[in-house]
């Protein structure tokens, strides 16, 4: 946790001078998206709701599988929340540098502002979808204990991990456009490697370990545990995954700063 805080502090120092620019970029991305759209911000709910209904149909009527002791709908929705944040953040941030090449070749600002503003917009959607989740919890009368507060560090972990993947891939995309082409495919693979529509609870230890190589597994699985199942998280797992996430963020950011200098020449 200390590492995480130190890393974030380092980044804030670099970005402090450009705080207003970051705010403006986030505001621009957010406004532009819902300008001239009739349902506007409700779009943030369309994707999780429609996917939830689709899963519900497939698992209840086609496969006839029951994943959880509580309403399956909540099971899917809780898994989709972090997943959709991750995937839409990647979709926004990966092409963010190359689409703004006019700016990058003309004016200096810390380049990570562009992918970060993409992540921030996805995070706003996440918060809106989270609000609906709370409504569902009330409607289904799920007893939520203080363990649900784990959502906060888990969300922090999710954001940090998403940021490291985004920054790494957005930077690489400046050199190799293959990254953007591979994004859809990569996200599809990653989706099935994450416990969004299944739970790893009843799996063999071997498979569990394999799936835990993906930090999203820990995050998604525990978001469900602590809110819906009222179970505590496993502390050593939390610190291990937290450490891995912080390290991956540090490495991704260092690599980004290293290659950033050449962006205007290769973009």
């Amino acid at each position: 946790m200390c590492v995480t805080i130190a890393v974030i502090a380092g980044k804030i120092m670099r970005l402090r001078k450009y705080r207003d620019l970051l705010l403006i970029f986030v505001w621009r991305e957010f406004t532009v998206r819902y300008r001239q759209s009739s349902i506007g911000i409700l779009w943030a709910l369309v994707q999780p709701l429609s996917m939830m209904l689709l899963f519900l149909f497939i698992f209840s009527y086609v496969l006839k599988v029951q994943n959880s002791s509580y309403p399956q709908m909540l099971f899917f929705y809780a898994g989709l929340l972090p997943w959709l944040f991750f995937s839409s953040a990647l979709n926004y941030s990966i092409p963010s540098l190359t689409t703004q090449y006019q700016l990058i070749t003309k004016i200096y600002f810390p380049r990570e502002i562009l992918p970060i503003s993409g992540i921030a917009v996805a995070f706003i959607d996440y918060l809106i979808a989270l609000a609906l989740f709370v409504v569902f919890l009330v409607i289904y009368q799920i007893k939520v204990s203080w363990l649900a507060l784990w959502m906060i560090p888990l969300t922090a972990m999710l954001v940090l991990f998403t940021a490291s993947v985004s920054i790494f891939l957005a930077g690489l995309n400046v050199y190799y456009r293959d990254v953007k082409l591979a994004t859809a495919f990569l996200l599809q693979l990653w989706f099935f490697a994450s416990p969004v529509m299944y739970s790893i609870d009843k799996l063999d230890m071997k498979i569990k370990v394999l799936l835990f190589l993906n930090p999203l597994t820990f995050i998604i699985e525990n978001m469900r545990r602590c809110v819906l199942e009222d179970r505590d998280i496993v502390y050593w797992q939390f610190f291990l995954v937290g450490g891995i996430v912080a390290l991956s963020y540090k490495l991704a950011y260092r690599y980004f700063i290293k290659i950033e200098r050449a962006f205007a020449d290769v973009i």
């Binding site: 406004t31 532009v32 300008r35 006019q102 600002f109």
Partner: peptide, 26 residues
């Protein structure tokens, strides 16, 4: 830098909104 036509401007936004964006960029 006086960046050329279009850079940093967003066509769907108003002139006033674009002043904020472009101003922040420079």
């Amino acid at each position: 830098p006086l960046i050329e036509l279009g850079a940093g401007f967003h066509l769907d936004l108003t002139g006033r909104e674009n002043i904020y964006i472009n101003g922040a960029i420079i």
